[in-house]
Simulated assay, not measured.
Amino acid sequence: MSVPAAAGETAGDGDGGAPPDSAEAPAARALLYGEPLLDLPQDLYIPPEALEVFLEAFQGPLDLLLYLIRRQNFNILDIPLAEVTRQYLGYVEQIRRSNLELAADYLVMAAMLIEIKSRLLLPARPSEPGAEPEDPRAELVRRLLEYERIKLGALQLDELPLRGRDFLVAQVHIEQAVAERFPDVSADELRAAWADIVRRARLTQHHRISREQLSVREHMTLVLRRLQGRRFVEFHELFEIERGVPVLVVTFVALLELARERLLEITQAEAFAPIYVRLSWQPA
């Protein structure tokens, strides 16, 4: 900005020299819609909380309580509630001054700590003989241990490599088409493949099994015919061994059925003596 010359003085030298130096243009304070803003508006209002910085070091009441216990190396199974509650209330008082809504959850935990401490001061309730007295801190300890396990698990998961954060997936695009090339096959390989197919075909052959129709009633009639007119017959003489096991089984079942119906008698003089079979209506 040029300064006007005093009365009776010339603005330049005798030869009409250069004009006076102009002042340097002020720097822009900000950009508003792409245009430089040289001066701040006089009616600009900045709320006090807009310049406040919050450092959220804890994720909740349990996180704060676990921090106080671990920082002082307290035994989590034997928490000194008086000292921990005093430190906890001091932190809650600090956050209550700045954010009452944030302090609400912490106040609930503080009330729980005070309740547990008061229950410890009262006489223990009588329990059953042989049972240990109930510890008011047990539920709080269980929640702290469970929260600590979940927190450590979350930290371990966070340390695992994450796509997009720790590594990127490489992508390669090949426009040139590659002609498919089949492998060469020799005559020996074809012969070995054919031999393998024949071997597997022999392993999967089907076998047809037919069974002989045998009737227990028919063999009962045959046994009665063999005993007809004979006083005694040895047990083994009633079986036709040459006809196979199925016929032997059916003959034995026929003998048992005849004995059940009291049509024949099976006798033995003594142990390990021969077994005899006879018709029950024949005289001894």
Rank of each mutant, 00 (worst) to 15 (best):
S127L: 03
S127K: 02
S127F: 03
E128D: 09
E128Y: 07
G130C: 04
A131L: 10
E132I: 04
E132C: 01
E132R: 12
E132S: 12
E134I: 09
D135I: 05
D135K: 08
P136S: 09
R137G: 15
A138P: 00
E139Y: 07
R142N: 11
R143T: 03
R143G: 01
L144Y: 03
L144M: 08
L144T: 06
L145V: 14
L145A: 04
E146I: 02
E146R: 11
Y147V: 02
Y147R: 08
E148K: 05
I150D: 12
K151D: 09
K151I: 00
L152I: 08
L152T: 09
G153Y: 03
G153N: 12
A154C: 00
L155C: 02
E159L: 14
E159Y: 06
L162V: 11
L162W: 06
R165C: 02
R165T: 10
D166I: 07
F167S: 06
F167R: 08
F167D: 05
V169R: 14
V169L: 15
A170E: 11
V172G: 07
V172A: 13
I174N: 11
I174F: 13
I174H: 12
A177M: 11
A177N: 09
A177H: 10
A179R: 14
A179T: 14
E180T: 12
E180L: 14
E180A: 13
E180Q: 10
R181W: 01
R181C: 00
R181H: 10
P183A: 07
D184M: 07
S186R: 14
S186W: 05
A187M: 08
D188Q: 15
E189P: 02
L190G: 04
L190T: 09
R191Q: 14
A192C: 01
I197R: 14
V198W: 03
R199K: 13
R200F: 05
R202L: 12
L203E: 15
Q205E: 15
H206I: 14
R208F: 12
I209K: 06
I209W: 08
I209R: 10
I209A: 07
S210E: 15
E212A: 13
E212W: 01
Q213C: 02
L214W: 04
S215L: 07
R217Q: 15
E218V: 06
M220F: 03
M220H: 03
T221P: 00
V223Q: 05
V223M: 06
L224V: 08
R226P: 00
R226N: 05
R226D: 07
R231P: 01
F232P: 00
V233E: 06
V233A: 05
V233M: 14
E234S: 10
E234F: 08
F235V: 01
F235K: 05
H236N: 13
L238D: 03
E240D: 13
I241T: 10
R243D: 13
G244V: 06
G244T: 05
P246A: 04
V247C: 01
